[in-house]
Write a protein that binds this DNA or RNA. Structure first.
Lengths: 204, 204
DNA sequence: GTCTATAGAAGGATAGAC
DNA sequence: GTCTATCCTTCTATAGAC
């Protein structure tokens, strides 16, 4: 593979990433991907054979990236409070760089749940889950937090960071004519959410 | 309009609702809508002229329904605690009957934010928002809850109820091999979430 | 109002020259 | 490796019979 190969293949991949993220699989057009990559349609097929294969490559990359971030942000030996601070800071900073990712991944998973299984091995994912759950058990046993259903905790944890990105347009509509500013709003959440979660679950 | 007209038009509308909710605008096929309605493609155009118009009718109906529910569940004179209990019970019960609605509406709004403006007048929406915000101000002034940014409160309120429906497949993957059951999980949230929110914001 | 048949456009994919 | 030209399928939309 020559250097030029690599460049073109990357340009295609990057353009496809943008288009698929914006429009989804069924909404994306090969012509638009070619245009944005600055090449023609035939080359897309030369490198990726079909729209489905190109999509698969992009999806696996993006979904993998997102889950890797969950993992590195959660997999450490901090106390729950520290872990929440670390998680929300890392995770929200990541989503700020990829604001369309949540909506994209959620939509495509709903279209075809099997895709997730191909995107990455789930041993890793389950290890993280078990880690977090063990920590919750320990903190409950130590009396730091109130007994709480662990899946509920996990769902709330993710909902609070992910949802605003997927629902940005809705929020902006509801809050129009106020001084709402999405970027400021998101930055605030990096510190507000750890506090919010801790208050919600702290033992009384 | 004869009785038969109405029946056919409704069958089309219902079939279109199902297909669009599942596959989105770009993923839906007129042929599949016709099949599910038990009529042929030509009739779709006879009644709705084009795919876009049919979609618009369906979207406006669904989005309107969802927002109406927000509104009736929030627009009342209860205390904050009661309001949260009422809201989550009503809203989650509604979403249980329309589990694909959140993913659908979020996706289509991201594709075309203008759609929201046509779906309903926003005076109503803003009235509710202002109501809720006024109540939050009052509860803060009365010392019942800690000072909190109102848009943050609203975002958290919605995130906690809506997100699990949009992310069901993801949750089920992460929690596979546990005794996770989505329906039970959702039912629990009707009572867990009011408590969770109140703990999170209660004055200390 | 409903159907069959088909037009016409759009989009994914390939052939073949360079 | 990259392009132009074109094929072929899919899909929306319409014409016209009943």
């Amino acid at each position: 593979m020559t250097k030029n190969d690599k460049i073109t293949e990357d340009r295609i991949f990057d353009a496809a990433t943008d288009v698929f993220e914006e429009q989804g699989l069924s909404g994306a057009r090969m012509q638009e991907i070619a245009n944005r990559a600055g090449i023609n349609k035939a080359l897309l097929h030369y490198y990726y054979r079909s729209k489905d294969r190109l999509f698969e490559a992009v999806f696996n990359r993006l979904a993998g990236k997102m889950f890797d971030r969950f993992i590195t942000a959660l997999d450490n030996e901090m106390s729950l409070q520290q872990k929440l601070e670390h998680f929300y800071h890392e995770h929200i900073t990541f989503l700020q760089k990829h604001p369309k990712l949540p909506g994209f991944v959620l939509h495509e998973i709903n279209q075809n749940p099997e895709r997730l299984l191909n995107a990455f091995g789930n041993e890793q994912l389950q290890r993280i889950r078990d880690n977090l759950f063990a920590q919750l058990d320990a903190e409950i046993a130590a009396g730091h937090i109130a007994p709480i259903d662990k899946p509920q905790f996990l769902a709330n944890l993710l909902a609070l960071s992910v949802f605003p990105f997927a629902a940005r347009n809705m929020l902006e509509l509801v809050l129009q004519d106020t001084d709402f500013n999405f970027d400021d709003f998101i930055n605030q959440r990096k510190t507000l959410l750890p506090e919010f979660m801790m208050n919600a679950v702290r033992a009384k």
